[in-house]
Simulated scan of single mutants.
Amino acid sequence: MPHARFERRIAALLAEADVRVGGERPWDLQVHDPRFHARVLGQGSLGLGESYMDGWWDAASLDGLLYRLLAARLDERVPRAGEIFDALRARLTNLQSPRRSGEVGRRHYDLGNDLYAAMLGRRLVYSCGYWRHADTLDAAQEAKLDLVCRKLRLRPGMRVLDVGCGWGEALTFAAERYGVEGVGVTISGEQAEYARRLCAGLPVEIRLQDYRALDEPFDAVFSLGMFEHVGVKNYAAYFDVVRRCLPADGLFLLHTIGGSRSVDRTDPWIARYIFPNSMLPSAAQITHAAEGRFVLEDWHNFGADYDLTLQAWRDNIEAAWDALAPRYDQRFRRMWRFYLAASMATFRSRRSHLWQLVLSPRGVPGGYVAPR
């Protein structure tokens, strides 16, 4: 019987990750629909994520299960749906062109400010917090924003650019705490509207604008969690934009999720349901694009902090679901749970990283000492 063969194959794979079907441990998998096995074997991560959204399986500890699957690298043993087509499309097409760049804004960041306000905490900062001396999400996010300002050596009167400014929290923090003025650009209409209200009364301008249109002087530049949407075909152009906006003695801080391997596309489930046209850069891809444009002054990896950040986001959103709009229905909730849990698993297994790079156009005279 085909079903029995698929079940045996899935059970053997899961055993390599110390996961049992029908087991009693929190990370064991509970199958509710027998079609699950064939769907995952045939579609890989896309089938795994979609079948969870459809209620075909559960795990008491979803992140615990997915962590074990990634740590055992089972994702490399099961095919990805449409992988050949996806690879050809990524190689032949600029998925992050100016025409396509707005899609992630419309489909993800414009989902609703109510969703993100419920999840992200006191500040709407949708990137990794810095937990070195913090024990709450709000403290970790404030520590991260302060770390960025200190790494850039911000001083009163400086003019600062935020590439991918989100809801404006980083520029607001820099203006209030460090006395700077600034410009933030985003491709999300919902974010821009919120950020303009947040920054009212501060010397901060928020623009609904693609980063490629920027061509004006700033004393410092930062970008927090936006580079994941740039795409490898556009890395050189991205660094050219930042370089032309900086003086010779300026500093640029790039805060991005990164992967251990060079790719040209993202996971198919993530691409379909969460971040269309996204991809995680590798260290090699970043340094290749920055070569000849910047001096790399500092490279800081605190990816383990993203696991803590995501756990806090999960706790917040789980406590808030019943108070949110009906449009966030049960299938959306399961999609969002899978997204957060899978993200935790990638950082916990050290398959993904959180990097902060500090770059200068010509090198800091006497050397650069980065705060931690």
Rank of each mutant, 00 (worst) to 15 (best):
A220W: 08
G179I: 08
T172R: 15
G231T: 06
T256H: 00
E190Q: 13
R207K: 12
R244N: 01
I206W: 10
A174S: 13
D249V: 02
D162L: 09
V160S: 11
V242N: 06
T172I: 06
V163H: 06
A237V: 07
G231D: 03
D240H: 01
G259Q: 09
R196F: 03
D240T: 03
P217L: 11
R159W: 08
R159F: 13
S223P: 05
E181P: 03
V204P: 03
V204D: 04
A170R: 11
V232C: 11
A175V: 10
V232L: 09
G231C: 06
G182T: 04
P203H: 09
V204W: 05
E176F: 04
L202S: 08
R197E: 15
L198V: 12
V185K: 03
W167V: 10
W167T: 07
R159I: 10
G184E: 01
V241K: 10
Y238R: 00
P247S: 06
G182S: 03
G182A: 06
G201N: 04
G225L: 07
V263M: 13
L246P: 00
V242G: 02
G182R: 01
K233N: 07
E190F: 06
G225A: 07
G225D: 02
L202H: 07
S260N: 14
L246D: 00
E216R: 15
L254S: 04
V232F: 01
L224D: 02
T172V: 14
D215S: 15
T186C: 03
V160M: 11
H229M: 09
L208I: 12
A200Q: 15
D215H: 14
V180D: 00
A248T: 13
H229P: 02
A175E: 05
G259Y: 05
R196K: 14
G258I: 01
Q191V: 02
G157N: 01
V180A: 07
D210N: 14
G179Q: 05
S188N: 04
L246R: 00
F218T: 10
F227A: 10
G168L: 12
I187M: 11
W167Q: 05
W167C: 08
G164D: 09
E176M: 12
E205A: 15
G250M: 05
V263D: 10
L253C: 12
Y238W: 12
R196W: 01
K233D: 10
Y211R: 04
L254C: 11
V185S: 04
G259K: 07
Y194D: 09
A248I: 05
R212I: 09
G182H: 02
D162W: 07
R243G: 02
P203F: 10
M226W: 04
L198D: 03
L253H: 02
R261H: 13
S188L: 05
F239S: 03
D162S: 08
R177K: 14
V160T: 10
D219S: 13
G179K: 05
P247R: 02
V180Y: 02
L208E: 14
L208S: 08
T256Q: 00
A236N: 00
H255K: 03
